[in-house]
């Protein structure tokens, strides 16, 4: 087994608002091994993107709490000051392809110059060196090299999305965070992009965090699946078990709501809405919508490690029954 590349412990990110702190990421812990892909799934507003931003420290100004530890490649990068983080971590070791990034390429700069920019700044390469590297990554994502001389509007959506992925890969990062990389693309383009990502995963062994609301597409790339609900990571499981046998009642319901093309199944939905993150319930945050809730669910559930390696935040799976922190 490969070594642990990313070890997140008790990460919290709260935003300050007039009505109180929004607990966007609340006490999230997980480990990710090098070369593996973690898919973070959940409904909109559950804190998936905030988790990515917390790892990369891309924070807005209205932060009320930002704590925990992020151990990346053996070092706690939460202890770095902002300048050191910017120089040593962001983009050079951990890169991100933000949501809708294909539409955020600068329209008046050629693709090649945009892709080379992080290399010139972070790795202090010369223009020629950067150009060689840019050519390499362009081939990796499967785009013809002569497109480098074009402007973004001359490329289709799928090509621009590949270009932004090439930009993230250019500096040889150990970890790439992909935020909804394919959701704005057409079905066939999306499938082609997933093929490209899969190829990159196999060939250069990059570690990915894939943030998506589309559980079907996530299965194309995921080794592990993490389910987020109302700011908490309620289940972390290997994809192999998750897709057949999810543990948390919310994960099960989520899976039951995904339509499938190849088999007949009765779709279910979860009545109600996720709780507000400003004043979330004291106990389990899913309890109000859960069919299996019982008295204990009014107390916040512990995170339980199960025999198959999965971790679940649910009293149904906590066999010790101890209440560690009320």
């Amino acid at each position: 087994m490969s070594k642990v590349l990313l070890d997140v412990r008790n990460l919290k990110l709260y935003f300050r608002t007039r009505s109180g702190p929004v607990q966007a990421v609340d006490d999230v812990s997980f480990k990710l091994r090098a070369g593996h892909t973690l898919a973070v799934v959940g409904e909109s507003g559950c804190g998936k993107t905030s988790l990515a931003k917390a790892i990369l420290r891309l924070l807005p100004r209205n932060i009320s709490t930002y704590s925990g530890s992020v151990i990346f490649d053996g070092e706690d990068i939460m202890k770095y000051d902002d300048e050191k983080f910017r120089k040593e971590i962001r983009w050079s070791k951990i890169a991100m392809v933000p949501q809708a990034s294909m539409n955020s390429l600068n329209p008046v700069i050629r693709i090649e110059d945009q892709l080379a920019e992080p290399l010139l700044i972070h790795e202090k390469l010369t223009k020629q060196q950067a150009s060689v590297r840019v050519n390499e990554v362009f081939k990796i994502v499967g785009l013809p090299v002569d497109f480098l001389q074009r402007y973004p509007f001359e490329l289709s959506g799928g090509m621009r999305q590949r270009a932004t992925i090439a930009m993230a890969l250019a500096s040889n990062p150990k970890l790439v965070v992909l935020d909804e990389p394919s959701s704005a693309l057409d079905l066939l383009t999306q499938a082609n992009l997933m093929n490209v990502l899969k190829k990159i995963k196999h060939e250069i062994n990059t570690t990915f965090i894939l943030i998506t609301h589309d559980i079907g597409t996530a299965s194309e790339l995921a080794d592990e699946v993490a389910v987020m609900y109302a700011g908490e990571m309620i289940e972390y499981n290997s994809a192999e078990y998750f897709y057949t046998d999810a543990h948390h009642p919310y994960s099960q319901k989520l899976m039951a709501s995904v339509p499938t093309l190849r088999e007949d199944k009765e779709l279910q939905f979860i009545p109600g809405q996720p709780p507000s993150l400003i004043n979330p319930p004291q106990g389990c945050r899913f309890a109000a919508r859960c069919e299996m809730k019982f008295a204990k669910c009014s107390i916040h559930p512990n995170t339980t490690q199960l025999a198959d390696g999965a971790t679940v935040q649910c009293w149904l799976h906590d066999k010790t029954g101890e209440v560690k922190h009320a």
Binding site: M194, K198, I215, G216, S219, E220, L221, A239, L261
Partner: peptide
């Protein structure tokens, strides 16, 4: 049809 992913770990 081929491009549509059903949730299935085999897809990987």
């Amino acid at each position: 049809f081929e491009a549509t992913s059903d949730p299935d770990a085999e897809n990987l």
